[in-house]
Amino acid sequence: MIDYKNVLTTCPYCGTGCALHLQVLDEKLVGVLPAKNHVVSEGGLCIKGWNVHAFVNHPDRLTTPLIRKNGKLEEATWDEALTLIADKFGEVKTASGPDSVAILTSAKCTNEENYLLQKFARAVIGTNNVDHCARL
């Protein structure tokens, strides 16, 4: 049996919010189709949106955090990675003050994730140094 599906989703590449269909054939991601009657993108996409399917199963995609040990990146668990980040933030903050830290968020995140990151910057670290990639 042929299993063809279009999965409606939002392009993850920037904050515009273009809609697209991921074309799934026999449980494999094979392409992208724009969504014509969607209010944001009205059937259009940019070159990144048209190629969204390419990164999902790409062999170069990182699937675990990496920690540099002795000059070499090694796979780590999320617990190890987050503990290391928390320790380093703490060290930097104690040594040089909270304004020595800056948080760069992303237009690829949701509003809620961006809210959490600015909250983290202001309430946990104690700095107003928050910006995001859409300013580029």
Binding site: N6, L8, L33, K36
Partner: peptide, 23 residues
């Protein structure tokens, strides 16, 4: 046939090609 390719209304009223099957 194994399927009929036509248009279907999906989530949010967004249409897309769909392979209709007898199943």
């Amino acid at each position: 046939v194994e399927g009929v390719l036509a248009l279907r209304i999906g989530p949010g009223g967004i249409t897309a090609p769909h392979l209709f099957s007898k199943e």
